[in-house]
Design a protein around this nucleic acid. Structure first.
Lengths: 198, 198
DNA sequence: CGATTCTTTGAAAACAGTCAATCTGTGTGG
DNA sequence: CCACACAGATTGACTGTTTTCAAAGAATCG
């Protein structure tokens, strides 16, 4: 797993062996079984989270139980609320694994200290934050689409990899619709496709 | 305006006069009248945008004309799609001023070069990206609230300053509901408050 | 297998959207 | 200073989509 993470990092930035050595020393790997929590609402955390293998979801629970999924993170994606990390602010979100997953946890303070020493690593952080921001905006664009089936259409075009990987009721939650509606939409679309193809 | 921006920056990071001098040299101020565009969908831009005075909105237009507002930015807030900046990617979003507004435009490449020289400025960038990310997540949390009146309630609790400043039909767009619905919701809430207070 | 978890289906109710008309306030030009 | 035009907000009646609730089918996993 360390190797896999090294590979990913190397694909993003140029690092000398000595630099990688420093970075790897502050990486903590954690393996989660399906359904296992990485963070619960209200808990504090000081770690950045990067998925090495698997898939985790970040979600919000309203007053009584119903959850809304904010984001999925798969291989090499970051998760978590970058802002609350390292500020002692309790997280609004919960994070758990939806398949067997391995993540790297990196202490935010240590990471920022390293960023000051390693300019390339700093670039990596900045780029990633921008990517997360862009992803979040994209997700926002998605959920504000006014009709449920356009939401789903848009989602499947944009995230085919998740479509295959994530249970339907979670996609529904991510899109802000009910699983029942999603099921009906899929049925309708399948029918449309059938008449269109031949 | 330069002063105002200096004040803001100083409140965020410690800068020597020499550093501020360097930064100020790459700042371009631009004043917009109400309704004036800063960026249109499809255009490219290489500049970071920070509002010094006034209010701008970032929005997305769907296939025929209807717009969905992604975000408002008021004094000292950043706007724009951090990722598309400086990559030659045409913007998905349009940005215009909803009141008389002054913004600072900072060329992204020049800014990043300065960040490499001035660690504190780099910290400022990182912090701001995190804040933008957090803001975007918050906005997402808002629009995924399932009922329109909870959306509005949540919005007014979270952004009282915008409530007073932004026309209602724009707030409706921001929340993903119609102006008519918002009007009815406000009426209902006013009635509830009337019976609750006395 | 047997049991949980996930998806599908149906019918009714609630909610928000649409369309169209009216109302209100503000700023402009005669 | 008034009248008009315009942008924004409100209201009503109606339509349509989505939710809800409930139950039955698949699928998956130990």
């Amino acid at each position: 797993m360390l190797d896999k993470f090294h590979q990913y990092l190397s694909s993003k930035v140029v690092l000398s062996p000595a630099e990688w050595e420093k970075i790897s020393r502050i990486c903590v790997f954690r393996t989660l079984i399906k359904g296992e929590f990485l963070l619960r609402e209200g808990e504090k955390t000081a770690d950045l989270i990067i998925v090495v293998q698997g898939c985790i979801r970040t979600y919000l629970a309203d007053s009584l139980g119903k959850i809304r999924i904010n984001s999925f993170a798969i291989e090499n994606e970051w998760a978590g609320d970058a802002q609350s990390v390292g500020r002692g602010v309790p997280s609004k979100y919960s994070i758990d694994a939806i398949e067997p997953t391995t993540v790297v946890l990196i202490n935010n303070l240590k990471f920022e200290a390293l960023c000051r020493q390693i300019p390339h690593l700093n670039q990596f952080l900045t780029d990633n934050l921008k990517e997360c921001l862009s992803g979040s905006r994209g997700q926002h664009d998605l959920v504000t689409i006014p009709t449920a089936d356009d939401k789903y259409r848009s989602f499947s075009a944009r995230h085919p990899e998740l479509l295959a990987r994530v249970p339907q009721y979670m996609i529904a939650s991510y899109l802000g619709i009910t699983p029942e509606s999603l099921s009906r939409i899929r049925k309708k679309l399948a029918k449309e496709r059938f008449f269109t193809v031949s």
